[in-house]
């Protein structure tokens, strides 16, 4: 289980996150909904060690404190982040990106096996291993990004707005793939603006507003909640 307790982040004197506590276990999908600028990306970056956290908060992975660990060590604990800019290596090939995903020591022994699994999830990537990622479409880049993260054999996958910029058909395909990843036992923590599709596949959800958690419930309950409908579902 990955757990944040009272995590706060300041950018200078600006408070981006305050006392955010959330958790995710293996094999579940948890979505965090919030408007632009609510602090969703900041939260994921803080968990993954890319952003400095204020004193007083802790992040635990399977009971181990990873609050002050650098990004490259956090990956080794089984937490993989796909940031909003996808975090891919645009000037390298598809195959090289996937091999880089298996760079963490924890993933090396299972490299061949994970590669097979990723190519099953994204058959498109199998067709062009030598293509430079920067020449690919947005949807294909997202496949490379998630595939790259899956290559590190994560227990928990953190995805920052994976549906951003994707055509509706690709979105549907993406959410279907996420469900398959979950069924393989990986926990997915999703930060999204696409509330409808993400609540449809999620088990639980959090609402983030102005750096604070303002609601937490099962995905089914959130989808019926009047406030959620008004704010995120446009109903």
């Amino acid at each position: 289980m990955l757990e944040s307790r009272n995590v706060s982040v300041f950018y200078g004197r600006h408070r981006a996150l305050e006392n955010v506590s959330a958790s995710i276990s293996k094999g579940e999908i948890v979505v965090m909904l919030g408007a632009n600028g609510a602090g969703k990306s900041t939260f994921l970056r803080a968990i993954a060690g890319q952003t400095q956290k204020a004193d007083g908060g802790t992040v635990l992975m399977d009971g181990n404190d990873i609050t002050r660990r650098p990004p490259h060590e956090i990956v080794e604990t089984g937490v993989a982040l796909v940031p909003e800019d996808r975090g891919i290596f645009a000037d390298l090939t598809v195959q090289e990106n996937l091999f880089l995903g298996a760079h963490p020591a924890r993933a090396r022994a299972l490299e061949a096996q994970n590669m097979q699994r990723v190519l099953e999830l994204f058959p498109r990537l199998k067709e062009r291993p030598k293509q430079l990622v920067r020449t690919m479409s947005g949807g294909e880049r997202q496949m490379v990004a998630i595939g790259r993260a899956m290559m590190s054999a994560p227990s928990i996958l953190l995805l920052d707005e994976p549906s951003l910029g994707l055509a509706p058909v690709l979105c549907t395909e993406l959410f279907r793939t996420l469900r398959r990843i979950k069924e393989s036992g990986v926990g997915i923590f999703l930060v999204e603006q696409n509330a409808k599709q993400s609540l449809a596949i999620a088990d639980r959800g959090y609402l983030l507003d102005n750096g604070h958690i303002v609601g937490a419930d099962s995905a089914a309950a959130l989808a019926k909640d009047e406030k959620v409908k008004a704010a995120y579902l446009g109903e």
């Binding site: 060690g49 890319q50 490259h72 060590e73 990956v75 975090g87 891919i88 290596f89 390298l92």
Partner: peptide
């Protein structure tokens, strides 16, 4: 080469 292309993403694949 990964560090050369994208240093911030390099940390995400456990490159120090």
């Amino acid at each position: 080469r990964a560090v050369s292309v994208n240093p911030s993403a390099a940390g995400l694949v456990s490159i120090n």
